[in-house]
């Protein structure tokens, strides 16, 4: 690793100030960033650890909204969200492995927006609101392509607000080596319609499958998806699966998610 110093502020305000330094970089759970640093693929001069900021940790459930602090670990989400939003807890408990879940955070995952990560699918399918130190961003406006988000330099995800759906499920088909999603589909049914978000598949990162959404909004059953398919163009193609295969999996997994949710 290149050398850098770590700062561990205890408030969002201090963290934002620290991130204003040249070549400063926020450190969430570090489960993606630290391996990248070890490979010398980044050279920040200061890492600003968000671990000691209590105000961005924890889960609160208020009526139909689950609010999760940006610094909340996957393990905590898995343990505490289950009663209010079981599909989200189910997603969290299948991210990475236990040790990764004890460190990795929802804010870190959403800020990174890895095209194969799980949380972006949940946030987009839930129509979640990403809360930062300066503003609130609707999920539909937040994700801007792989590894790209609406976040400005130095902006911190402080919380994510999930409206609780009537029914939802996340089905992940794992890439056998990394265990990231080769394809993951999150289906969430709300009073005003169904949202379907797909991760792992597109070269543009997480996206909504609008044809499936309209079909499911009028008939929330797997049969509503009969005959619907996506093109493999623009889908990730790598040694684990072609774009066409990923497109095929999206259709299969969406049906399974609908069945699991129903």
């Amino acid at each position: 690793m290149y050398s850098f110093e770590i700062e561990s502020p205890t408030s969002v305000a201090d963290a934002v100030a620290a991130l204003g330094k040249e070549e400063a970089q926020a450190l969430g759970g570090g489960q993606t960033l630290i391996p990248s640093l070890k490979a010398r693929l980044a050279a920040p001069s200061v890492l600003v650890s968000l671990k000691n900021i209590d105000e961005i940790k924890g889960v609160s459930i208020n009526g139909d909204t689950v609010t999760i602090g940006g610094g909340t670990t996957h393990a905590t989400v898995a343990a505490e969200v289950g009663s209010a939003y079981p599909a989200l807890a189910d997603l969290a408990v299948n991210i990475g492995d236990p040790a990764v879940r004890n460190r990795g955070t929802i804010g870190g995952s959403l800020a990174n927006n890895d095209p194969s990560a799980c949380y972006p699918a949940a946030a987009l399918a839930s129509g979640a609101t990403i809360v930062t130190n300066t503003r609130e961003i609707a999920a539909d406006d937040y994700f801007e392509g792989m590894f790209t988000t609406a976040l400005e330099e130095g902006e911190i995800v402080t919380a994510v607000k999930f409206p609780v759906p009537e029914a939802a499920a996340y089905i992940k088909f794992e890439q056998p080596a990394s265990r990231f999603a080769l394809v993951g589909v999150f289906v969430a049914k709300y009073a005003d319609g169904v949202r379907v978000a797909v991760t792992g598949a597109s070269e543009d990162g997480v996206f909504r499958w609008s044809e499936a959404e309209s079909a499911l909004s009028s008939n929330f059953g797997a049969d509503a998806l009969d005959g619907l398919s996506l093109s493999g163009d623009g889908m990730i193609s790598d040694l684990h699966g072609s774009g066409d295969y990923r497109a095929h999996l999206i259709a299969v997994l969406t049906k399974r998610a609908v069945k699991a949710a129903a």
């Binding site: 056998p176 080596a177 040694l239």
Partner: peptide, 21 residues
């Protein structure tokens, strides 16, 4: 699961546990 994959230029693509299953 396991496979060592080179691209046509001789770059090893499955060169970590992220891709070598």
């Amino acid at each position: 699961l396991e496979s060592c994959v080179y691209d046509e230029n001789g770059q090893l693509l499955s060169a970590s546990y992220m891709d070598y299953a």
